[in-house]
């Protein structure tokens, strides 16, 4: 049984397919990472270093930005990721004319 799933070649995170324990080595196809803390199933693990401010990439898409330096094997979640959507409406403005 595979331990993690990488959804896109551009991704810098993988998804835990089962609960992962601290210190465990996981991966396949030449990609091996040491898990730094317990990872619940379905959660994300960094496979590269993600410097503070850089995008977290899943599905080949930016899903957020690192709020601190993230090391390979680290749990990537709300504690170290910034949600880019702060005020949706201001970030996606429509002019008065466009609103119809």
């Amino acid at each position: 049984m595979a331990s993690v799933l990488r959804l896109n070649d551009d991704d810098n995170v993988v998804i835990a397919l089962r609960p992962l324990s601290q210190g465990e080595m996981v991966g396949k196809n030449g990609l091996t990472i040491a898990i730094r803390s317990a990872i619940p199933v379905g959660h994300k693990v960094a496979i590269n270093r993600i410097p503070k401010g850089e995008p977290v990439i899943k599905f080949g898409q930016t899903i957020g930005y690192a709020s601190e330096d993230i090391q390979p094997g680290e749990h990537v979640h709300v504690q170290n990721v910034i949600d880019p959507v702060k005020n949706w409406k201001d970030q996606h403005p429509l002019t008065r004319d466009e609103r119809k």
Partner: peptide
């Protein structure tokens, strides 16, 4: 369940 941001939820 492991979803961190609105963008991640929506992308899925």
């Amino acid at each position: 369940g492991g979803i961190t941001t609105l963008a991640e939820k929506a992308m899925g």
